[in-house]
Amino acid sequence: MKYNSIRPGQVWLDTNGNRIQAHGGSIIYVDGVYYWYGENKEKTTGENKIWHWGVRCYASTDLYNWEDKGLIIPPEPDDPDSSLNPEACMDRPHIIYNASTKKYVAWLKIMNKDNTQTETVLTADNILGPYTKVREGLKPLNMSAGDFDLAVAEDGKAYYYFERVHSETICADLTPDYTDVTGYYSTHFPHTQPPFVREATAHFKRKGKHYLLTSGTTGYLPNPSEAAIADTWHGPYTVQGDPHVDDPSHTSFHSQISSVFKVPGKKDLYIACADRWLPKLMDLKYEEYAKTFERIFSGDWREEEQTDDRLNMPDMHNTSIADYVWLPLRFDGDKVYIDWLDEWRIEDYE
C-alpha cells in the first residue's frame, strides 16, 4: 500500500505491509532522508514480560511511506542485568548529531526494578548504527530522570529536558560530547504529585521562542497536554494551557506527544508526533481516571477501591497495536494550537 497523506489514529503500515513500530518516537533528517525511530513494541502484547524489543528505525523521502531499516539498537535478551534486556522498561529514545565529534548520540530512559529511572547513552558514526554504549545507569544531576527530550542550539550547545520523577521539569546543559550533563540546570513546573507533574517533554523553537509541550503523568492513559513558551532555553516558561482546544475528552485526542518535528523546506510546518497507546480504550474519559492517579500518589488509596475493570484489562498493556496521531501545529501569534484532522498532506503547507 502506498500512502499520499497522513491519517491520524489509523493503522500505519511500512512498505512491507507491517505495522510501524517506532513508539515514543522522533524524526531526524539526514542527507535528504527522514529517519523515524522509536521503541519496537512488536512483542509487547500484555501476555508476557517483554517491554520492548530494541529501537527500530524507518526511512522515508516523503513522510508518508516508511521503509523498515531494522533494529538500530537491538535488545539484549541474554543479559538479565542489561538496560537493553527486553524486560527492562526502556522508553523514548532520542538521537542528536554532534557536529564536533561527528557522532550520533542516543539517550534512552530506563525504568529500573527499584523504581529509580536512569539513562543509557550510546554513540554511533551513522544514524543507523551500530551504536556502542558509553554510559549505563547514568543518574543525571543525581536525580531520578524520567521522560525527556534532547535539543541542539545553532551554536552546537545541547540541552536535556527531563521529568524529575513525580516532581518537576528540569532543563540541563549537556557536555560538549552530548553524553552527560555539565551540572548547570534550571527547574520548571513544580507539582506535588501525578497526575499534575509534567512528563513527555517535547521542545521546539520557532521565531526565536522556545516551546515545551508536555503531558500529565497517567501512565499510558492519555490526559490534557500543556504548552509553555520562553525567550531562552532555560526560561522562565509561561504556561499557555492545553493546545488541543477542540478535544471534549481532554485526552489530547487520545494520544501523548513524543516529539515535535520542523519539516525542512516548509515555511512554518511543525508536526506533533504522538502515540495513541490504547486504541481499544478510547471510551475512557480523562475525568474517569485522573482522580484515581491523584489519590494513589497522595497516599489516599486502597486497592480494593478499584472498581473500573477497564483499568486492569489486557488492553492496558498491549502496546503492540498502538497507533500514531501526527498533527500539524497551528499558530496564532505566539500561541500554539493542535486541531483534529482526519487526513492531511505535507504538500498543503508552504
Rank of each mutant, 00 (worst) to 15 (best):
F253G: 03
F253H: 13
H254Y: 14
H254D: 13
Q256M: 06
Q256S: 09
I257Q: 09
I257N: 11
S258Y: 12
S258C: 10
S258H: 11
F261K: 05
F261T: 08
V263S: 11
V263K: 07
V263F: 08
V263L: 05
P264K: 08
P264R: 12
P264Q: 13
G265V: 12
G265K: 11
K267F: 10
K267R: 15
K267E: 15
K267I: 05
D268V: 04
D268H: 11
L269Q: 00
L269D: 07
Y270R: 01
Y270A: 03
I271T: 12
A272F: 04
A272I: 08
A272C: 14
A274K: 04
D275S: 11
D275F: 06
D275H: 10
R276E: 05
R276A: 00
R276P: 00
W277V: 11
W277A: 07
W277C: 08
W277S: 08
L278M: 14
L278N: 12
L278V: 15
L278T: 14
P279D: 05
P279Y: 08
P279M: 00
K280A: 08
K280E: 11
L281Q: 12
L281N: 00
M282V: 13
D283R: 00
D283P: 01
L284T: 03
K285V: 00
Y286I: 04
Y286C: 14
Y286G: 09
E287T: 10
E287A: 15
E287C: 14
E288W: 01
